[in-house]
Simulated scan of single mutants.
Amino acid sequence: MFLLLMATTESQATEPDWQVLPDTCVVDKPGDLCTMSLTISARSLPNDTYCLYLADQKLECWQTIKQSFQTTIRYGQNSRLALVNSRDYVVLSADLKIKTLQSPQGRRRVRSPWSIF
């Protein structure tokens, strides 16, 4: 029983993990492009060649990935950042969001367009 518990703890400790900061970009109005610098911290990645993808576009590739690195990206809508190994398997992924300061075009009507009175 103790060996089984120890084996599952070791396998959980070696699972790849990463942290992508920031994961949200704030733009002035809807449709604006977001350009931001990301800090990516990766842990427990086996030795392999990795490529970073934004949506389906390849950004960078590395023979050996560093524990922490920075990259600058540009995107115009909510997207997915993915780390893909040499066998085209998505090892890790993170969602990147865009928030706008201005509300979408058009005004909301507060009351009904007609009234009996």
Rank of each mutant, 00 (worst) to 15 (best):
N47G: 12
N47A: 15
N47F: 13
D48K: 14
D48Q: 07
D48S: 15
T49S: 07
T49I: 09
T49M: 04
T49G: 03
Y50D: 00
Y50T: 10
C51D: 07
C51L: 08
L52W: 05
Y53Q: 05
Y53V: 10
Y53E: 08
L54K: 05
L54V: 09
L54T: 09
L54S: 00
A55R: 08
A55H: 10
D56A: 11
D56W: 07
D56E: 10
K58N: 11
K58G: 11
L59Y: 09
L59N: 11
E60R: 15
E60N: 13
E60Y: 03
C61N: 10
C61P: 03
C61I: 04
C61G: 08
C61R: 07
C61S: 09
C61L: 00
C61Y: 06
W62P: 01
Q63H: 12
Q63S: 13
Q63M: 12
Q63F: 11
Q63A: 13
T64H: 12
I65S: 06
I65M: 05
K66W: 06
Q67K: 15
Q67N: 14
S68T: 13
S68E: 08
F69N: 01
Q70T: 14
Q70A: 06
T71D: 04
T71P: 03
T71N: 02
T72W: 06
T72Q: 11
I73A: 09
R74N: 04
R74Q: 14
Y75F: 15
Y75I: 07
G76D: 05
G76Q: 03
Q77P: 03
N78G: 01
S79Y: 02
R80Q: 15
R80C: 11
L81R: 04
A82S: 14
A82H: 00
A82I: 06
L83F: 01
L83V: 09
V84T: 12
V84H: 04
V84Q: 00
N85A: 08
N85W: 10
S86Q: 13
S86C: 10
R87H: 14
R87P: 05
D88M: 14
Y89A: 12
Y89K: 15
V90M: 03
V91T: 13
